[in-house]
Structures are given as structure tokens and as C-alpha cells.
Simulated scan of single mutants.
Amino acid sequence: MRLTVMIIATAGLFAAAPAAASGDPAAGQRVFNQCRACHTINEGGRNGVGPNIHGIVGQPAGAREGFRYSAKMRELAEGGLTWTEENLRTYLRNPRDLVPGGTMAFAGIRNDQQLNDLIAFLKQN
């Protein structure tokens, strides 16, 4: 009986995990307003202080044509860093955690729901 309850409880945790990580792209667009000072997201958009990030989810890091990346970002990109949802979450929470010595001057997003929303928005764009 205890084993059955534990299995059911564990299954419930796994079923709840995707819902906790889901985000609202419309709310994420509002969160992205913090990023607009340095980044564009429209297809074919220009690089600014930061690179254009249209279609960034799933793409290799440090690969936007015409943008000059920090030495550390280039090093990590050469090592195969890709903008997975997990890597984006780490980077957007605190850029220095993923790219120590990088040049992104952003303190990060600490609110989990805002992170989920922003990533949903990035996936959509």
C-alpha cells in the first residue's frame, strides 16, 4: 500500500512539473521590454548593444552574424554552448552563472514566473 501511494505521489510531481515550467508568451513580451534596450527580436533585425535574438531557442550561442561577442562567450560557443531552455533559464536568472567574465550588463530575472513567460515568448519568436 505504501509503495502504491509513493508511486502515485511521485507521478503527480512529474505531471505537475511541466505546468510549473510553462509560461505565457504575452506576459513574456512584457518581460522582454527589459531586454529591448540592448536586443531586437524581429526576424532579420539589427544587432544593438546585444545581438538580435530572433529564433534564439535551440540555436548555438555566440553565432549571430555581425555581433562582437566577449572572449568568454566565444570560448563557450566553441565548446558547443547552445541556447536550450535550461541554459537560457540559467543565463537569464544571472548571466554570470553561465558566462562568467561575459559582458552582458544585466542583473538577471529572479522571478520564476517571469522567466517562464520570457522563455515562452522567446520560443514563439
Rank of each mutant, 00 (worst) to 15 (best):
G12S: 00
G12R: 00
G12F: 00
L13Q: 11
F14T: 03
F14I: 07
F14W: 15
F14E: 02
F14K: 04
F14H: 07
F14Q: 04
A15E: 09
A16P: 00
A16T: 00
A16D: 02
A16L: 11
A16W: 03
A16N: 01
A17R: 08
P18L: 01
P18A: 01
A19V: 15
A19D: 10
A20I: 15
A20Y: 11
A21D: 10
A21H: 08
A21W: 13
A21I: 05
S22Y: 11
S22A: 15
S22H: 11
S22P: 06
G23Q: 07
G23D: 05
G23T: 00
G23H: 06
P25I: 03
P25T: 01
P25C: 06
A26F: 05
A26D: 11
A27W: 08
A27F: 04
G28R: 06
G28I: 02
G28D: 06
G28T: 02
G28C: 03
Q29T: 05
R30H: 12
R30N: 11
R30F: 10
R30E: 13
R30D: 14
R30I: 12
V31W: 00
V31K: 01
V31G: 02
V31L: 01
F32V: 07
F32H: 11
F32D: 05
N33L: 10
N33V: 10
N33C: 08
N33R: 14
N33E: 15
Q34T: 08
Q34C: 11
Q34K: 12
Q34M: 15
Q34L: 09
Q34W: 10
C35K: 00
R36G: 07
R36C: 04
A37Q: 14
A37L: 13
A37E: 14
A37T: 12
C38G: 06
C38T: 03
C38D: 06
C38I: 05
C38E: 07
H39P: 07
H39A: 08
T40D: 12
I41A: 14
N42V: 11
N42E: 15
N42K: 14
N42T: 09
N42S: 11
E43L: 09
E43I: 12
E43D: 13
G44M: 10
G44A: 09
G44H: 09
G44C: 08
G45N: 06
G45S: 08
G45F: 05
R46E: 14
R46Y: 12
R46G: 10
N47H: 03
N47V: 01
G48D: 12
G48K: 13
G48T: 09
V49W: 14
V49D: 14
V49S: 15
V49M: 12
G50M: 01
G50N: 04
